[in-house]
């Protein structure tokens, strides 16, 4: 019959009209996010050994990392992500040996002011080295620095040197650490 298609079309839209709606009312209700969602970064300063691997892995140079040497260990003083350049690729998370940096499910990161955009994860003073090193280290450097000293002191005395940019490239150049070339 002529005009059958028109009636069919009207029937379809009517069915849609009366059917259940799929809209999720965003701020009040949200979709469940998958476990491996790439959201805002969370950082565990206790685990970080300031090895700089994440900063090297980053394709956009988002990560700004500063550390000071306290005793024989590196102490992380600043860890800022200029999140406006971040593409949430997850290279830093993959690069981290100590599982210090991770994704969270948080994704509301818009800001009113440009200055507020960088994600300041760590910003702190390094503990001051005491004049008497043997006594002072456990107390003055604080609880945070202590476990690192105990756990990894013997094995990785050379690693901080390797992770610092200059010395790492020196090693690569010298052929000492060929596995680091790709990074």
């Amino acid at each position: 019959m002529f005009g059958n298609g028109l009636i069919k079309g009207l029937r379809i839209t009517w069915k849609e009209f009366t059917s259940k709606k799929f809209t999720v009312q965003y701020p009040e209700e949200q979709h469940t996010k998958p476990e491996r969602f790439h959201g805002r970064f969370v950082f565990d300063a206790d685990k970080c050994i300031a090895c700089n691997l994440c900063a090297n892995a980053c394709p956009n140079n988002v990560i700004e990392l500063k550390s000071e040497k306290v005793e024989k260990k590196k102490f992380l003083t600043k860890y800022v992500m200029n999140i406006e350049y971040c593409l949430f690729c997850g290279m830093c998370v993959e690069a981290c040996n100590k599982d210090a940096i991770n994704f969270s499910l948080e994704h509301d990161m818009s800001q009113y002011n440009y200055d507020a955009i960088p994600l300041i994860l760590v910003e702190r003073e390094a503990p001051k080295p005491e004049p008497k090193p043997e006594e002072a280290t456990p107390e003055a450097s604080g609880e945070k620095a202590e476990p690192k000293v105990k756990g990894k002191g013997k094995q990785k005395e050379e690693t901080p040197a390797a992770s610092a940019d200059k010395s790492a490239s020196d090693e690569v150049a010298a052929g000492k650490a060929p596995e680091k070339e790709g990074q």
């Binding site: 849609e16 009209f17 259940k20 709606k21 799929f22 809209t23």
Partner: peptide, 10 residues
């Protein structure tokens, strides 16, 4: 509203 309802939104 009609447009929304016919497109499965509100």
């Amino acid at each position: 509203k009609v447009a929304g309802y016919m497109q499965a939104r509100i």
